[in-house]
Amino acid sequence: MKSLCSLSVAAALLFSGQTLAATEIAGIELPGSVMMQDTQLTLNGAGVRSKFFMDLYVGSLYLPTAAHDLKQVLAEPSALVRLNITSGLITADKMRDAINEGFELATDGDISAIKPQITEFMGLFDEAIQEGDQFSFLTTANSVTSYKNGKLLSTIEGEAFRTALLSIWLGDDPAQNSLKKAMLGH
């Protein structure tokens, strides 16, 4: 009976799309689940952001339950986007430029409603960025809490900001389509 119960749990996890095993992508070990602010989040998907045939970072998405599009991710009580920097070519200036471009694309060129939050968010990238750094963006309804290498940096309020930030990787015009698909488990 115990093994039948274990088999049922394993089958339920398999069909729910959730992964409990750790995964390695581009030399980065990604845990199958993480605990953030007393919430267990499971790896939904992960992939590599590359440009000109160079890997820049591994992007991963952790959720309470599996989701396969931005609408489902936004409906979750929390979502964690994690960026593990894999290239020494990423500088703070390049990261700010890429994030600003992402916000422009995510808002169809009209950042006016979230300009103060974007300005505050850009302050997260004032310090040097090095290969091996990890940025984590925990989103909950109306807020984004940001960490660098596990250290709390800030919490920024606003649902429009949260939606725009997630859209950088998961929206209609993402940073990279293949990364979006990988993070959404496709």
Rank of each mutant, 00 (worst) to 15 (best):
K2A: 11
K2H: 15
S3I: 14
S6I: 15
L7Q: 12
S8T: 15
A11N: 07
F15K: 08
A26I: 02
M36S: 15
Q37P: 14
K51H: 12
F53P: 04
F53N: 15
L56H: 08
L56I: 12
Y57A: 03
S60L: 12
L63E: 13
P64K: 05
H68F: 11
H68S: 15
Q72S: 13
V73H: 11
A75Y: 08
E76A: 15
E76K: 15
V81L: 15
G88C: 06
I90C: 10
I99D: 02
L105I: 07
D110G: 00
I111S: 02
S112D: 15
A113F: 09
Q117G: 00
Q117V: 01
I118F: 03
I118H: 10
E120N: 05
M122Y: 03
L124F: 00
L124G: 01
F125I: 08
D126Y: 04
D126F: 01
A128E: 08
A128S: 07
Q130W: 03
Q130M: 11
Q134S: 04
L138A: 07
T139K: 07
T140D: 13
S154W: 01
T155G: 03
E159R: 07
A160Q: 09
A160C: 00
A164W: 04
L166E: 00
W169L: 08
D173I: 14
Q176W: 03
N177L: 14
L179C: 02
L184P: 08
